[in-house]
Design a binder for these strands. Structure first.
Length: 504
RNA sequence: GCGGGAGUAACUCAGCUGGUAGAGUGCAACCUUGCCAAGGUUGAUGUCGAGAGUUCGAAUCUCUUCUCCCGCUCCA
């Protein structure tokens, strides 16, 4: 039974060192979280699994790590400057908040005409939005124009509209002036698009192929919520898969299947994943069609864990120079700034074309949250006691093996345990921990709670001092399975093979 | 941003109409011929989210602010 409430996960994460609130000792900074000693292992393991499946186990994807600081022209031509800011306005009476452009679309023509007249502007939605944002007393203009509250269909009183820019700006270089800013990227994808030519030139890739990247992105969310689900600084695992126009829909479906399979390979159950075919009117500015993979999170229910978008030729088309020489299908803004043609040869005709792009874009933090949700298990044991176990897939577990001395005041035992720990650590399986806190029972439970798949215990038999002077079990240890709690005795020399098999 | 709820030890929480902070678990050290949060001894930890005010005295009352949760709004 996976976790049922977010609270129990938050509590475990804090208690055991997975995830802490950001800037904690100063009261926290909204929308930021820090990954603790176990959280960083889990997150790294998840990213490594993705990287392996995307790049090593396929023959058609290259990796990339582009910078977070991004030239403003990149995000201007990508359309983010224009679309990643929402003008919002509040209704003073109903206390509801609307996007200004959405609100204007709900109005009758004479209301819009009244606003246009008051502002002495042409009567288009975009002109009115811009004019209202620039006007010092726009709230009064809206109210006087008898803008209706859509819910009640009645004129109402409105506040000054304000712009919520979703992109973080920062100053680059020592001189602070109006033009010396850059953005923290709102998606890793743009780093891939602007490196398209570099990758093609340096790897001699042909269509179809992909470029994958894992990295931080930043969005100034209006309302960060729900633990690490919606945060302002987050990590993405994105693939931009370039293909011949006309084959894009087929690839879109293939990637949808591949991504669902991958999420299952990290432990998510199929019945907690839903596919959401995003309706046309909700699509992003670059997308022709998007499937959202929705995972059933605790407390909040089905929410997006990955978006698989058909970005058409919008991005490369927007960033390329000489746009007019390609038969672009997406509607793009003119680009007089770009210095490169972002085309590639059509595999059959050899003519330069701008490829279509299928983008599976997954949230690392949302993935970690889903994996934790699914692994979290509360069991009632035979003796009536409750046990919390993280049934993580072994390849994701932060700690792979804990080596425990049965008695920590016996040097013969602790020294064997310590050297066994060092020996196992060298196998490169991941983190191996020497564990001597509390007593043996507590050590087991503690490792159940953080998902350690195996606990190895060095006891008196190991050092040839079994009961009644029995030395037949010399050099053997017990190894305990996290999920079944069953133990078996193995010679220390057989541990490597055992663990290599089980931790794959 | 609005409405509602909440912030006390690492976690879960108690602390009444103001009188100077507690429990359980956890954590640390030591002991234990022994294996499923076992037992024993000892120990540490709080600016009671922050700031200001009222008061002889504030965890408790008032104001401001920050953070979290729920709803609205918004959202790859």
């Amino acid at each position: 039974m996976p976790a049922e409430t977010m609270e129990e996960l938050v509590s475990l994460c804090k208690r055991r060192g997975f995830i802490f609130p950001g800037s904690d000792i100063y009261g926290g900074l909204q929308g930021t979280y820090d990954f603790g000693p176990l959280g960083v292992e889990l997150k790294n393991n998840l990213k490594a699994a993705w990287w392996r499946s995307m790049i090593y186990e396929r023959d058609d994807v290259e990796g990339l790590d582009s910078s977070i600081l991004t030239h403003k022209l990149v995000l201007r031509h990508s359309g983010h400057e224009a679309t990643f800011s929402d003008p919002l306005v509040d209704n003073r009476e109903s206390k509801k908040r609307y996007r200004l452009d959405h609100l204007l679309k709900e109005q009758t023509p004479d209301v819009l005409e009244a606003i246009a007249t008051a502002l002495k502007l042409e009567n288009t939605i975009s002109a009115l939005v811009a004019g209202l944002l620039a006007h010092a007393d726009a709230g009064t203009v809206l109210t006087n124009a008898k803008v209706i509250e859509p819910g009640e269909k009645k004129p109402s009183a409105w506040t000054q509209p304000r712009l919520f820019n979703m992109m973080f700006k920062t100053t680059v270089g020592p001189v602070v002036d109006e033009d010396s800013y850059a953005y923290l990227r709102p998606e890793t994808a743009q780093g891939i698009f602007v490196n398209f030519k570099n990758v093609v030139d340096s790897t001699s890739r042909k269509l179809p192929f992909g470029i994958a990247q894992i990295g931080k992105s930043f969005r100034n969310e209006i309302t960060p919520r729900n633990f690490i689900f919606r945060v302002r600084e987050f990590e993405q695992m994105e693939l931009e898969f370039f293909c011949v126009p006309g084959t894009d829909e087929e690839w879109h479906d293939k990637w949808l299947e591949a991504r669902i399979e991958w999420w299952q390979s990290v432990g998510l159950s199929r019945d907690r994943i839903q596919i959401f075919d995003v309706p046309k009117e909700d699509l992003s500015h670059y997308s022709k069609r998007t499937y959202d993979l929705m995972y059933k999170y605790p407390s909040i229910g089905f929410e997006e864990i990955e978006g698989i978008a058909n970005r058409t030729d919008f991005d490369l088309g927007s960033h390329t120079k000489n746009q007019e020489s390609y038969a672009l299908q997406a509607k793009v803004e003119p680009n007089a700034d770009s210095t490169e043609k972002l085309s590639i040869s059509h595999p059959e005709t050899q003519k330069p074309i701008i490829p279509f792009v299928i983008e599976p874009s997954a949230g690392v933090d949302r993935g970690v949250l889903a994996v934790l949700t699914e692994a979290y298990t509360k069991e009632t044991l035979e003796n009536g006691e409750e046990r919390i176990v993280l049934k993580l897939r072994p390849h994701l577990a932060p700690i792979k093996v804990a080596v425990i001395p049965l008695a920590k005041n016996r040097e013969e035992i602790t020294s064997v345990a310590k050297s066994l720990k060092a020996k196992l650590q060298k196998l490169g399986l991941g983190r191996v921990l020497y564990e001597d806190t509390g007593n043996i029972g507590k050590a087991y439970r503690r490792h159940d709670e953080v998902g350690t798949p195996f606990c190895i215990t060095v006891d008196f038999d190991t050092i040839g001092q079994g009961k009644d002077g029995d030395s037949s079990l010399m050099d053997t240890v017990t190894i305990r399975d996290r999920d079944t709690m069953a133990q078996q005795r193995l010679n220390m020399n057989d541990l490597e093979q055992f663990l290599r098999e089980k931790l794959r």
